[in-house]
Design a protein around this nucleic acid. Sequence first.
DNA 1: ACTAAAGCCTGGCTGC
DNA 2: TGCAGCCAGGCTTTAG
Length: 278
Amino acid sequence: MPELPEVEMVVRHLRKLFTKRTIEKAQLYLPKLVSDATPRQFAAALRGARVTSVTRRGKYILSHLDNERTLLTHLGMTGRFLYVGAKDVAPKHTHVTLWLDNGKRLLYEDPRQFGMMGLSKTAELGAYKLLAKLAPEPFGDEFTLAYLTATLGRTDQQIKLALLDQTKVLGLGNIYAAEALHRARIHPQTPASQLTKARLAALYQEIVATLTEAIANDSTMNTDPSDLGASYTGGVYESMTKVYEREGKPCLTCGKLVERITQGQRSTYFCSRCQKLR
DNA sequence: ACTAAAGCCTGGCTGC
DNA sequence: TGCAGCCAGGCTTTAG
């Protein structure tokens, strides 16, 4: 699933393939994908624009254009970009086609339609609704132990749920939240405000370490260099998870069988021997 | 102000 | 073989 490491992989691919290209024509086939522009406005905003840079904010991909606008993309669960030749057939759930000045097309495909795109004036990006409340970047200077301590101290939410809240901690999804908690030896149902100083320090360290390690190992994405990530499975990191989707298998640290519980209507995998409530 | 839950979606899998 | 039912889950919206 596209969490921060997967999005970072996509951004790195886009940087190579999309930067400095001019969009000759754009077409949006699924109007609801873009809430702040009609398909006509979307096409008009992108036509003739040159991509100056591609960056990331949390799980959002930001394609900055030379017409003072930025195209935002959130991949949701199944969103992905495809870079194809002029004659290649677009897959079934292609919602956007961008015709590039090198004869290639950049397609956006999303079967489950949980992803979205947005358009913002680049200068107003900081105030853009979807970005304004996001927590600091986990690799940035603002994400400190002091920040994490203050933020988590304010909520009695179960720690797993707090970690998924992008306004509290940025970049983790279901996979990496479970992995970070296992590495920090924290039970996912621990109330966030009850974490001791030592456990907060461990958690802080393991959040950064988990994301760093995932990126260093190409995340869970299958990275075909001719593509922008053919799928969100098959990546190196997928086989490195210690608890995620390993229910009933031995914990790689202690051997006890990994358990699965439901939190916030989604699965959490953990080891009840390694991860204690206190 | 905060938290919980519903809703958005399709494809793949399970069980009858 | 066919099909109903369930599950995957990031984010927004709505309800409490």
